[in-house]
């Protein structure tokens, strides 16, 4: 088929059609597939490992649900997050009061997550609403919150930590080795949409 229209006119036509199709497709998509048109992603923040302080220090900086003599995880208002090891995560999990947030995709969350962790996929359109709701629950903003994704090069937990930090949570702790390490430790996991 011969075309007498210049290339840029036809290319612009393809682009306009693509924009329209994307707009319609995104408008009818469910929350797991929908995206905000303007992304709010930031580069991975440099997270320094947090050094838990044992014993007496715990009393000076009380952590939510921390038993006497337990390690303290003090807030770090100067940075969005701090990395913690698997041992520290197990210790925080044993307190049963520390919120665990799963930053991976909801579909991955359904396949298996830390028992009790809540889905907070940083890539899905409803993450900001979930953070607002989490804030509205009245969670102590300086108490530890554990965020995890798939370990290794996964940046999702850092991105979620940045979002939490922006609304005022200053004690977000990143499970550096993530879900694979949790499974390797034979710790409790759950499948499905519920924590």
């Amino acid at each position: 088929m011969r075309s007498r229209r210049p290339f840029w006119v036809e290319a612009a036509g393809f682009l306009v059609l693509a924009l329209l199709a994307a707009a319609v497709s995104n408008a009818v998509a469910g929350p797991e597939r929908r995206l905000k048109w303007i992304g709010s992603y930031q580069a991975k923040a440099a997270a320094a490992p947090v050094k838990p302080t044992p014993g007496a220090a715990a009393a000076a900086t009380p952590s939510l649900g921390a038993p006497a003599g337990a390690k303290a995880f003090p807030p770090h208002p100067d940075k969005a997050s701090a990395d913690i090891s698997g041992e520290d995560v197990v210790e925080l999990y044993s307190r049963k009061t520390v919120p665990f947030l799963d930053a991976r995709r909801t579909s991955v969350y359904r396949d298996g997550h830390i028992a009790g962790a809540r889905p907070f996929s940083v890539w899905e359109a409803d993450v900001d609403d979930k953070i607002k709701a989490f804030f509205a629950e009245g969670t102590d903003q300086s108490a530890p919150i554990v965020v995890y994704c798939s370990g290794g090069n996964c940046e999702d937990s850092h991105m979620l930590a940045e979002k939490l930090y922006l609304v005022g949570f200053d004690n977000v702790l990143i499970y550096k080795d993530g879900y694979p390490d949790w499974v390797q430790r034979n710790m409790p996991v759950t499948k499905g949409s519920e924590p």
Binding site: A18, N26, L35, W37, I38, S40, Y41, A43
Partner: peptide
């Protein structure tokens, strides 16, 4: 960062529409 989502939404449709054409 602000362009990531728009690109993720439009680029696949551009591939499909141009491919069909």
């Amino acid at each position: 960062g602000p362009l990531v989502n728009a690109m993720a939404l439009v680029l696949p449709w551009l591939e499909v529409i141009t491919g069909v054409a």
